[in-house]
């Protein structure tokens, strides 16, 4: 079986898997990293949102063979370490606003939010309501109102 190596949450990992297996299953089923959630495996619900080299992506829709040894994959579990703290400011904002209900969508929501704030900044502005409206992550518990507030608060501390 082919072997694949990449950086996962700061550590180089090597895993044996068929080339076409989507990264989400490599993370969840083979490596036991369960922060990224399975909600559709169709690149629609965004529950699996994680980061590749600092940008948001959906591992349910990427074959493991498309990940390069130098690629850095960050899941919700590795997010705090990207700022060298116990919690990333966006996670703190999520706690401050008591965003989560069932919580199933929230790892993906937080990962998408962090990337959205950075994307807005790279484009020269602070994250706005229009930016938040572009997020496609489903929250079937309907926590959108607090998500919006938490993103803005988290951004201020990022």
């Amino acid at each position: 079986m082919p072997s694949h190596t990449f950086k996962l949450n700061g550590k180089q990992v090597t895993v044996e898997a068929e080339n076409n297996v989507r990264l989400l299953w490599v993370l969840r089923d083979l490596l036991g990293v369960t922060g990224p959630k399975y909600g559709c495996a169709l690149d629609v619900c965004k529950a699996c949102t994680s980061h590749i080299n600092g940008k948001a992506f959906n591992p349910c829709s990427v074959q493991v063979s498309d990940i390069k040894p130098t690629d850095e994959i960050t899941t919700i579990e590795g997010l705090p370490a990207t700022v060298g703290k116990d919690l990333h400011p966006m996670q703190e904002a999520w706690l401050d606003y008591d965003v989560a209900q069932c919580g199933y969508c929230q790892p993906g929501q937080i990962m998408a939010a962090v990337a959205k704030v950075k994307q807005a900044r790279a484009a020269g502005h602070e994250v706005s309501d229009a930016d938040v409206d572009e997020l496609r992550n489903i929250c079937r518990c309907g926590t959108y109102t607090r998500i919006r507030e938490a993103i803005k608060a988290g951004a201020r501390k990022m």
Binding site: T34, W94, G103
Partner: peptide
């Protein structure tokens, strides 16, 4: 009051049914 499981949720630690590991219970 904030939810008591909020910290586990935002850190990805909360275990849902899909996240449980039962020996040899394969997908």
């Amino acid at each position: 009051q904030n939810r008591i499981d909020a910290h586990d949720i935002v850190t990805g630690r909360k275990k849902f049914g899909m996240d449980l590991q039962v020996p040899n219970a394969k997908p």
